[in-house]
Write a protein that binds this DNA or RNA. Structure first.
Lengths: 120, 120
DNA sequence: CAGTATCCGAAGGGATACTG
DNA sequence: CAGTATCCCTTCGGATACTG
């Protein structure tokens, strides 16, 4: 699921969901936000392998796709919070299903993927 | 979900599923195969926007991840069929959930994505 | 019909350094 | 703490032409 800004030949629901989920960290961002981790620094800690820049890019795309909304509090130091929109909340069960499938088949997946990995 | 052959820092089920689903056409390939479209030429017709080369690449990755298996019939002209493995079949309900979500929210998705799209 | 080789442009994403 | 600007490298995926 990547942002193809250009050609867009949407065929079915799988295309459409692909358009909003494609991006290396988007599913996890949505998941962590749904779990109540709202602050950018929190998300950064949850996903240390992502660069801060890319996290911001993908958060902005999720926002443009109306899956999350962003609140900026005019305080010092700056404070920002993300939340799922109602629309975004409808996606949580689907993300959950994806994650559960991954968890249930962790052993086999690690084998076929070939990585060592590490627990969160 | 992209093939990151190199670093692999798997955190949770979402990472793991990402590893096997990342690829522009993989979800649809799995879906169409689950629907009984087994031949490469069939899949190509179903996904005309994908190049033949990339379809083969992604099919091979799905095979390496043991989600599908490939049968080559020693006949002329060549005949090839793909099928889901038992493992791959466990993924079908999840793919279905993704597609259903996309279908249910088609209108809104098309608006936020900004594409015109076309039906399959 | 099925598959591969080569070439290439375009995104994606990381590192770093910087501002408010 | 949050965000942006550059720079750069890698990968993805499309086009084309070719072989069995």
């Amino acid at each position: 699921m990547r942002e193809r800004k250009i050609p867009l030949n949407l065929n079915c629901g799988l295309d459409l969901i692909g358009e909003v989920l494609y991006g290396k960290w988007k599913m996890r961002l949505l998941w962590f936000i749904s779990q109540g981790h709202k602050r950018p620094s929190e998300l950064q800690r949850k996903i240390p392998d992502a660069s801060r820049r890319v996290l911001n890019v993908q958060l902005k795309e999720l926002e443009e796709h109306e899956l999350i909304c962003k609140t900026i509090y005019p305080v010092v130091p700056p404070k920002v919070e993300y939340e799922l929109t109602d629309f975004g909340r409808t996606l949580v069960p689907v993300i959950g299903a994806l994650g559960m499938w991954g968890d249930e088949h962790e052993g086999r997946l690690r084998r076929v993927i070939g990585g060592t990995g590490r627990a969160i």
